[in-house]
Computed example of a mutant assay.
Amino acid sequence: MKIYLVGGAVRDELLGLPAKEKDWVVVGSTPDEMKTKGFKQVGKDFPVFIHPKTGEEYALARTERKSGHGYTGFEFDTNPNVTLEEDLARRDLTINAIAQGEDGVLIDPFDGQEDIKNKCLRHVSDAFSEDPLRVLRVARFETNLKLFTVHEDTMEIVQEIVESGELEYLTPERIWLEFYKSNHIYRFCKFLDKINILDKLLPGCVPFSQFEPDEFNDGSKLKNISYFMHENVGDMDIFCENLKVPNEYRDLAVMLNNCKEEYILFNPSNTDACDKLQSLIKKLDIRKEDRLKEFLEICNSFENNHLNYFLGDLIKEIRSYKLKKEDQIKSDNEIQKIVENDYKVLIQSYLNNYLKKSN
């Protein structure tokens, strides 16, 4: 039984990047032996084991054989005679097919280190074409690894997968995951457009020629992706349904669609400023504090934004507003009018103070 560190952790160390997680492959073992050593078995398709102390994943070395459509249509062989090189041969790119032994020695049968040096994304073997998900992985790696380019032979196989129709078997969840893992969505979509699958995998987007190349990116996936959706998705319903987009991303993108321009262009000097601000606050639905916080952080990154200076304090006062005791027994319509009028007085007071300070 031998254990090797494999995949992204080895690749990232060679690239000088922090490793996000560690994956291990075990050669010459069986499920029973792993369990006797305290590993907990998980995974239905092939044996993966969780280390009893570190919680990291250990997979038995395996080979794969295509048996159906999509990225799940495989049969696996995990017998203890499967070699490390056979396991590495099933991987997608040479840069991901490097292993490190417990002694620190690298095992690199497919010249992944040379491809890292040359900043080249190259497939390991012809088996690359059996898994359509690898098209999206290539798009993600080209996006995330700056200055890396896809080898022309690999691009040919990518195009063959596109033309085969196998991408139709990818689930929305897997498409979303690769989209989510991309660090620069514009470049990710540019690759998909180059191989003519952008409109199929990300339906609802505007044509790529109309994409906004600038992204909002402060390290928050929620804000980055929601802003991308706001700028580049023409049909939000189709996009979100086809990718099973989480509700918080959709809701923030819709809020940006409905309120961002009005927020940024707000002019406190206009005669109707009070009415407009009251209308905007109502649309912002200030009860949803987390979503409002994300919205404001995006909008407040733009220059010449008046509301940045006082809206936060104003909203705090509105949230703490309490109806007078004698008004609480009145009819719903009367209460609504009282609240709206009190809000208007409060908003006008903030506007007056802001204008006074500005002058």
Rank of each mutant, 00 (worst) to 15 (best):
I3H: 05
I3V: 10
G8V: 06
V10T: 03
L14R: 10
G16T: 07
P18C: 07
E21H: 15
D23H: 09
T30H: 00
K35V: 11
T36Y: 14
K37G: 04
G38E: 07
K40C: 13
Q41P: 07
V42W: 12
F46S: 00
F46G: 08
F49V: 02
H51A: 01
P52W: 08
T54L: 06
T63H: 09
G70V: 08
T78S: 15
T78R: 02
N79L: 02
V82S: 00
L88V: 07
R91C: 03
L93F: 09
I95M: 00
A97N: 05
I98Y: 05
I98Q: 03
G101W: 04
G104P: 01
V105G: 06
E114M: 06
E114W: 04
C120D: 08
S125K: 08
D126S: 14
A127Q: 15
A139L: 09
L147H: 07
F148M: 02
V150T: 14
V150K: 11
E156K: 04
I157P: 07
I157G: 02
Q159V: 01
E163F: 03
S164L: 09
L167Y: 01
P172D: 06
R174S: 08
R174P: 05
W176F: 13
L177M: 10
F179H: 01
F179V: 10
N183T: 02
I197E: 07
K200A: 12
P203I: 03
P207V: 05
F208G: 06
S209Q: 11
F211T: 04
F211G: 03
E212P: 05
S220Y: 09
L222C: 03
Y227L: 01
D235F: 00
D235V: 06
I238C: 14
F239T: 15
F239A: 02
N242C: 13
P246E: 06
Y249T: 03
L252H: 10
C259V: 10
E261S: 04
Y263P: 06
I264V: 15
I264R: 12
I264T: 09
N270H: 13
A273C: 08
K288Q: 05
E289N: 10
E289P: 03
L292G: 08
F295W: 14
E297W: 10
E297P: 05
N304F: 14
N305H: 04
N305Q: 03
D313V: 14
I318T: 08
R319D: 10
K322V: 09
L323H: 15
I329Y: 01
S331K: 12
N333I: 07
I335A: 05
K337I: 05
E340W: 15
I347H: 10
S349G: 10
Y354D: 15
K357L: 13
K357F: 11
S358D: 04
S358A: 06
